[in-house]
Design a protein around this nucleic acid. Structure first.
Length: 479
RNA sequence: GGCGUCGUAGCCAAGUGGCAAGGCAGAGGUCUGCAAAACCUUCACCGUGGGUUCGAUUCCCACCGACGCCUCCA
């Protein structure tokens, strides 16, 4: 079964066939680094992380580019976001960009999001943007006005093909003419001439100024991925005008199709409303990580299909946490049993493992259906628990194969099953100490000294170590 | 007003033209010194009204409702 993806450009699920066999070039709109990221950003980037991980798992050589916007992203007032923050913080704009770029990467690292291969910054690609604007001017798709350079939307009939909106249908009364030099309200800025005191400005053929927001993605994706590339990702909320403008600019300038597959992520909502900076209903990633493990946050995100919106609540996070615990407990038990499992014997569970592996892959091949894939892992876990509780000895080959499925699919692809932790020096000592206490407690239990046994269990519990008595002995887990 | 997405059990949610995954919560049970975990059993006629069909939750139409975008946001 080939990989199928929902291509927003066609509004339907289609076979995914990359431009160059075995190779995927992918661009995702990154954040504007003017503040700490919130869970809405987490949903978007965790989704694409899952997609990239799965593409690589499937054998594709993926080149993943995700930009950082540090200039040109204007507020409605016309003020640059970064500049506004810089003024508030009495800092240089690039200090702000640097601060929040680091914050962003720290958050993504903590969430287990694999870094993009290239994270180009808009401010570091001014020449590329200028070059593209010059091409657009030369081809008659842009014009120079007294306050900057604008893209002439009327020169590009395909404008609107992604978001499926035609400008004449829009309520034009509500939009205002931001740039006085605009010929038409829907035209958008490519280059904005800066006032003398504006801190961010570069030389250009049209005078000192700075680039418009949309042009950076066109220029940088072209530089690193080429005129035509495979996947363009982003949040659905940016489909218009941002993504629409990107397509128009790029195709008008390059004369060839831009991204071939558009994958857009549904928004994260809070009480049914979009989580966003402007609404003020956001939870930062740092706050969320203080309360939930990264694997739990990822599991939560994967409970709905990436194209759908997902509603945030502590209740929902806790439900995800309990569900994740079920998986993690089984993995922990498998790894623990693996340590002294009988060597001899074949993998007796091969059928079940193969069946679930295939189901998982079938789910993911169907437009990265992580919720269904998660369901497969849960169903598999039911089988594993039954096996482990059967009282029959389970040999090493079987346990290793089970562990491999969890590590490959839950770990490598979804990033929700952590690696076996009991390896570092600290962890080895901790492990040995806990085992010592478990042994002492076992003696107490054998002597029916339950008060002492419970004391050990309760005090360990207070330290975040949870003991579980099983037929074959006591296991522990760290909270 | 325009464009678009969505409406499945108490909650989250996948999915299919032919007896509706999975998780959380709940109920009963097994195991356990107790606990925890796990396992077993139990819990839906898929927003409303039409239409197409042998048969629709799944396709079409209408309506109702929610949300997103049209103005900065992933």
């Amino acid at each position: 079964m080939p990989l199928r993806v929902y291509n927003v450009l066609q509004r339907e699920k289609v076979d995914f066939v990359p431009l160059h066999e075995g190779k995927v070039n992918m661009y995702v709109c990154g954040p504007t680094v003017y503040d700490h990221s919130h869970l809405g950003h987490a949903k978007a980037y965790i989704s694409f992380d899952m997609i990239v991980r799965y593409l690589r798992f499937s054998g594709y050589d993926v080149l993943y580019v995700q930009n950082l916007t540090d200039v040109g992203h204007l507020l409605e007032s016309g003020e640059d976001r970064i500049l506004k923050k810089a003024r508030q913080a009495s800092a240089l704009p690039m200090q702000i960009a640097e601060t929040y770029a680091r914050s962003y990467f720290a958050d993504m690292d903590a969430l287990g999001v694999v870094r993009p291969d290239i994270s180009p910054r808009a401010s570091a690609h001014i020449p590329e943007q200028i070059e593209m604007i010059e091409t657009l001017l030369r081809k008659g798709h842009a014009y120079v006005a007294e306050d900057g350079v604008y893209f002439d939307v009327s020169s590009w009939p395909e404008y609107g093909k992604l978001s499926r909106r035609r400008l004449e249908e829009q309520e034009t009364g509500s939009r205002r003419l931001k740039g006085s030099g605009k010929r038409s309200p829907e035209d958008f800025a490519l280059w904005i001439l800066a006032p003398e005191d504006h801190i961010l400005q570069w030389n250009s053929p049209w005078g000192r100024g700075y680039p418009g927001w949309h042009i950076e993605c066109s220029a940088m994706s072209r530089k690193y991925l080429g005129d035509t590339f495979d996947i363009h990702g982003g949040g659905i909320d940016n489909i218009f005008p941002h993504n629409e403008c990107e397509i128009a600019q790029s195709e008008a300038a390059n004369g060839v199709p831009f991204a071939r597959y558009w994958l857009l992520v549904g928004s994260l909502t809070v009480n049914g409303q979009k989580m966003s900076k402007s609404l003020g209903n956001f939870v930062t990633i740092k706050d969320a990580l203080a309360r939930y493990r990264p694997e739990v946050i990822r599991t939560f995100m994967f409970q709905a299909h990436y194209t759908n919106p997902i509603d945030f609540s502590d209740e929902a996070l806790r439900a995800a946490e309990r569900g994740w615990e079920r998986l993690a407990s089984a993995v922990r038990l498998v790894r623990s049993r693996l340590r002294n499992a009988p060597e001899e014997g074949e993998n007796t569970f091969a059928q079940v493992i193969r069946a679930h592996r295939e189901q998982f892959i079938a789910a993911m091949d169907d437009d990265f259906n992580a919720p269904a894939a998660l369901g497969v892992l849960q169903a598999f876990t039911g089988e594993v628990n039954k096996l482990l509780n059967s009282g029959e000895p389970v040999n090493k080959a079987t346990l290793a194969a089970i562990e491999a499925l969890y590590s490959d699919l839950g770990g490598q692809v979804l990033g929700i099953i952590p690696k076996d932790e009991a390896h570092g020096v600290d962890m080895r000592l901790t492990d040995a100490l806990i085992r010592l206490l478990i042994e002492i407690r076992a003696q107490a239990r054998a002597e029916k000294n339950f008060a002492r046994a419970d004391q050990i269990r309760n005090q360990l519990r207070a330290l975040g170590v949870i003991l579980e008595d099983r037929p074959e002995g006591t296991t522990y887990r760290l909270e």
